[in-house]
């Protein structure tokens, strides 16, 4: 593999193939050596099967998220672990929809994805994971993750840069010895800030480390229309159209919750 120094990293796609398509074009235009996705291909949005041809055609290198493990292995739920009855109700709805509309070839493909990837980016050893390097469905929120805990992860997993997603909100923390933790955000839905764009990250080492979070506009009214015609919940459509989360709020810590509307 030739030396890489600039990559685009996508977080959860949540069936949002329109955003994925836009992100691939956008990243290509900005010039990157490779495209990565950190898992959670399904959930939330319409037409799960439309995601896979894009990933394959553009050689997006994926790892598994909790959703992909669940769908790929015919599990009964998405392993998000909601306890609030309302959150659980919506989580179940989107899981069932995604499961029923993902064909068996795609399910097998997800099942065979690796759980993590390691890459060399310039002089940095990069570890790509879904939630955290130690637990695929661990939430690492900016406001509830101490810096010394991240130092511990970087030590224990021998990484200079740890990339993750899973929470739905991007952030970056610099650690000692020019090491970094980056949550790359998600393509699947906006990040609860009242804007309709979604986010991905461009990570580079030229030779210094730099992360740039890219706000990505896509045809969200079209996504909303398709979600309606697939009879997905109005609450999900509202999130796409307004940029505010309406469900699965239980897991947000105080600080992140306060920034949202609900």
């Amino acid at each position: 593999m030739p030396e890489m120094e600039r990559i685009a990293v996508f977080g959860g796609i949540y069936n949002n193939y329109l955003a994925l398509d836009a992100a691939i074009q956008d990243a290509r235009q900005r010039g990157v050596d490779a495209l990565y996705c950190l898992g959670d291909l399904g959930a939330f949005g319409p037409h799960p099967d439309r995601v896979f041809p894009l990933l394959r055609e553009h050689a997006v290198q994926c790892i598994q998220g909790n959703y992909d493990i669940s769908i790929g292995n015919d599990l009964s739920d998405c392993q998000c672990g909601y306890t609030d009855p309302r959150d659980n109700y919506f989580a179940r709805l989107s899981y069932q929809y995604t499961y029923q509309h993902t064909n068996s070839a795609n399910r097998d493909w997800m099942k065979d994805l690796p759980g993590q990837r390691r890459r060399q980016l310039g002089r940095y050893r990069v570890l790509m994971c879904h939630g955290s390097p130690r637990r695929m469905n661990e939430f690492l929120w900016e406001s509830t993750t101490s810096t010394h805990f991240l130092e511990h992860l970087a030590d224990a997993h021998q990484a200079d840069v740890i990339l993750g997603t899973h929470t739905g909100i991007k952030w970056h923390r610099q650690l000692s010895g020019d090491r970094h933790f980056v949550n790359v955000g998600v393509l699947g839905r906006p990040e609860n800030d009242g804007r309709t764009n979604v986010w991905y990250a461009i990570v580079e080492a030229r030779p210094e480390f730099r992360v740039e979070f890219i706000p990505l506009a896509y045809d969200h009214p079209a996504l909303a229309a398709e979600m309606r015609s697939e009879r997905l919940p109005d609450e999900f459509v509202e999130t796409v159209l307004t940029g505010w989360w309406t469900t699965c709020l239980e897991v947000l810590p105080a600080r992140e919750r306060r920034r949202g509307k609900w």
Binding site: G81, T83, G131, R135, N137, E138, T144, E250, V251, P253
Partner: peptide
């Protein structure tokens, strides 16, 4: 623990 820790109840 708080729900935000992502430990499943």
């Amino acid at each position: 623990s708080n729900a935000s820790s992502g430990r499943r109840d």
